[in-house]
Design a protein around this nucleic acid. Structure first.
Lengths: 152, 152
DNA sequence: TACTGATAGTCAGCATACTGAGCAACATCA
DNA sequence: TGATGTTGCTCAGTATGCTGACTATCAGTA
């Protein structure tokens, strides 16, 4: 009988669980209330102003039905704006507000600190190796989830 | 500006996302409807008959508020039974039913196949190394989530 | 131009996860 | 025994993720 600790799926869940907890703790201590998912969306919108929801979802591998709620919450917090596209009346163009940009600047140290904390059991070399292996496994499995990563 | 791919937190989320999708696909193809979370709970109850919910939660690092729903669904499917404990009237003792045991036997190949598929981009050696690094990072961060792993 | 298929977004419903609160039962100690 | 603190479990509320269905719109073609 295999132990849970021999199951990559179980380890994936556990590592993700810790990663989220660390992120929320660090960002919360900095005085902000942003989830990892909201942060990634916000940062990606800032890097790609005016992109639509489907493109955003592809860039961070979110399901299109999930992104709706994330966008709603970011908009409600005043961090982004959602405008109808002029070229395609189905699409909505996303833009980070000034407050969104300010928030991003302010929480960056907390976000980076969180990334360090979740790897604190590993040496720098091991941390790099873990990320390399995760990237490789993810690349091979990209099409297996409903929300694969998509290039812009 | 750091890329998402340099964030262990993002990689964790993505790997977990793929792991769940692969698990559901494999188990679904085998004709069963069990989530990874339900599977881990079921297997752990079978290995520790009569354990209570808090102990179960500790063994698989689930939050105690999450386990309630998982147990409900397993019981509703007829895979486990929940009895009041005679020693502690607050506690409920969990037991796998015969159908639960049969189900566990039947889906084991699908579960193992899923674990292989989610590592298919890696060599055997790389897969082992990924698991080792995940275990190490998880051990160091165990206490950082609300639902840490606990020994029996 | 009318038809057909694809695409952008949303919604309902279900299953994790978590926060925080609450109740019942237990354990300990004055 | 009685007060106090702890523990097992549940519930309400919020935030991902997913399945599947639906509307509005677009794009290509007959």
């Amino acid at each position: 009988m295999k132990d849970n600790n021999d199951m990559p799926g179980h380890l994936a869940r556990r590592f993700q669980q810790i990663a989220v907890a660390v992120f929320l703790a660090e960002v919360g201590e900095a005085g902000y209330d942003l989830t990892p998912v909201q942060y990634a969306a916000l940062a990606t919108i800032k890097a790609n102003p005016g992109l639509d929801q489907v493109t955003l979802a592809g860039l961070i591998a979110y399901d299109r039905t999930t992104i709706t709620g994330v966008i709603d919450r970011l908009a409600q917090k005043g961090l982004i704006e959602r405008r109808a596209s002029s070229r395609d009346r189905r699409a909505r163009e996303l833009e980070v507000t000034d407050e969104g940009k300010r928030t991003l600047r302010k929480i960056t140290p907390a976000v980076e600190s969180a990334q360090r904390i979740m790897l604190r059991g590993l040496s720098a070399k091991e941390g790099d190796e873990l990320m390399r292996l995760l990237r490789k496994a993810i690349a091979a499995g990209n099409e297996l989830s409903r929300a694969p990563l998509r290039e812009a």
